[in-house]
């Protein structure tokens, strides 16, 4: 006995403010290609949800069809998922959020899923300002059907086969801002720090968050000549700001210089801090945001950062004036009017 080493308490597992470990936010093992940008985005979602202390049971993960739309299987296994049909995730998400207004919707789509087959539903989702985080995992191609161009591919970008894209790209961010989304930004799956901060701010926002995340497809669109490759992004990524996020619950006052940093107070009291890398870019100014995005296209830059935030606009849930209690679980007494109502209506029809 004398030789035995004294028991040492095992290090306490790291837990977040609701007592969960990061493991509780993990999902199944990915079946996407090694190095696929989509995997990195899944990791950022896990980290952000963990750090923000979001109860996984309150999260839903609707998605469309594509490699990107498969990814919800690979994070947050304790959250309900709905891998729906191609391009129609917005309607499924809308229905689910209206059925239960307390759900936190994290929708995952691809550039094909959003900008081609699903562009109609995408547009109308943005108009409604439904509370949802809508992520486009944007690789400029259809990964799952083996590498055809998508509608976000830049003009002049080439496929592996040498085919050149000769149609202009759809800028989903400019579109989202024009249509009414209230938190719009672009990031890059390879920019861990920026995406991480933006994801946390997205969770804090109440309304439609539209994040276009450039996410290289290592199998079909990561070659020389592609404008959605890791290398191209490293060379052309033009961050508008240095994004950081101070959650409301952290209650620590971090000093910032109002001259160089914009502070946006979010719906839940947290702070989005944007250290300006460009002189007078104001992310609460829609017109400016759209103009700046158009400029970026002309200059051939891939602008990233938070382009537009409006934390005061009413959401679709506000507009519908629904009961606090989810429609899904209202008891019969709340949803079936009494006999006297039927009698009254019958009398009117006599």
């Amino acid at each position: 006995m004398a030789t035995s080493t004294p028991d040492r308490p095992a290090p306490a597992p790291k837990i977040n403010r609701i007592g969960l470990a990061v493991l509780d936010y993990r999902g199944g093992k990915t079946t996407l290609c090694a190095g696929c940008g989509h995997n990195a985005i899944s990791e950022r979602i896990i980290d952000a949800m963990y750090e923000m202390g979001v109860p996984p049971e309150r999260v839903i993960k609707p998605s469309g069809i594509g490699c990107s739309s498969k990814s919800p299987a690979y994070f947050m296994g304790r959250s309900h998922s709905f891998n729906a049909v191609h391009g129609r995730m917005p309607s499924v998400a809308t229905g689910a959020v209206l059925a239960n207004r307390h759900l936190i919707a994290l929708g995952v789509s691809g550039d094909g899923d959003t900008a081609s087959i699903g562009v109609g539903q995408f547009i109308h989702l943005m108009r409604r300002n439904l509370p949802i985080i809508y992520i486009i995992e944007d690789n400029g191609v259809y990964g799952l059907t083996k590498g055809q161009f998508s509608a976000t591919a830049d003009m002049g970008s080439t496929l592996k086969t040498g085919v050149i894209n000769d149609l202009p790209p759809i800028d989903t961010c400019a579109m989202a801002i024009t249509l009414g989304a209230t938190f719009v930004g672009r990031s890059f799956s390879g920019d861990k720090k920026q995406l991480h901060a933006m994801m946390k701010a997205a969770i804090a926002h109440n309304g439609t968050v539209m994040l276009d995340v450039v996410s290289p497809c290592v199998t079909f669109n990561d070659h020389e000549g592609s404008t959605k490759s890791y290398k191209y992004m490293k060379d052309h990524d033009e961050p508008l700001q240095e994004v950081s996020f101070v959650p409301a619950f952290e209650d620590i006052a971090i000093d910032y210089d109002p001259g160089t940093t914009i502070d946006v107070t979010m719906h839940d009291g947290s702070h989005l801090r944007l250290r300006k890398l460009e002189e007078d870019f104001d992310p609460t100014n829609r017109i400016q945001a759209i103009t700046r995005l158009n400029e970026a296209h002309e200059k051939g830059e891939v602008l990233t950062g938070v382009f537009y935030v409006n934390s005061k606009a009413p959401t679709f849930v506000d507009l519908l004036n629904m009961t606090e209690e989810p429609l899904a679980t209202l008891p019969e007494s709340a949803v079936r009017p009494g006999r006297e109502v039927l009698e009254q209506v019958m009398e009117e029809l006599r």
């Binding site: 499924v92 998400a93 809308t94 229905g95 209206l98 239960n100 539903q121 109308h124 899904a328």
Partner: peptide, 23 residues
Amino acid sequence: AIVQAEDELAAIGMVVGAGWAGA
């Protein structure tokens, strides 16, 4: 909640989403 959807694809999509979530 009554929503005039953008087309029938969206209408049924919303029904499916809402039905899945319990409405």
